[in-house]
């Protein structure tokens, strides 16, 4: 999926201007959510990680990332062995970074119009 199509659902839902406003607001929140999840996972605080994932999941589908939703579901279900594996956090960071880059590109493209 290209970054141009990542936010199709959101743009169809809100329109271009509203989608831009929403993403500008969401950018720091998504970054904070990533940091919180990583901290909770590193500290083996599974309940706090699950609560953060649970809250973020309500809007995660707006970024068209099925992979991220799977990862959030895994955190909510708390399979400790999976969550402890370093690859899980690495994949999670990669997915968040992909979304953050897509938002930056979307904002840059539309700032020029």
């Amino acid at each position: 999926m290209t970054t141009a199509t990542v936010f199709n659902t959101l743009v169809a839902m809100l329109g271009q201007e509203s989608a831009q406003r929403f993403l500008a607001f969401a950018q720091p929140q998504i970054h904070q959510c990533k940091q919180d999840l990583l901290t909770h996972l590193q500290q083996h605080d599974w309940d706090s990680a699950a609560a953060t994932a649970h809250r973020f999941k309500a809007t995660a589908h707006l970024y068209s990332s099925a992979r991220l939703i799977e990862q959030l579901d895994t955190i909510i279900q708390k399979p400790i062995q999976t969550l402890q594996h370093p690859a899980f956090s690495q994949d999670l960071v990669a997915e968040f970074q992909y979304i953050e880059r897509a938002i930056q590109q979307f904002m840059a493209n539309h700032a020029n119009h």
Binding site: M13, L14, G15, S18, R21, F22, F25, A26, Q29, R55, F56, A58, T59, L62
Partner: peptide
Amino acid sequence: DDDILLHKLLEEYLCQ
């Protein structure tokens, strides 16, 4: 709701 992203989403949508 304690989800401020949901606040923003609904604010943008319902305002329209």
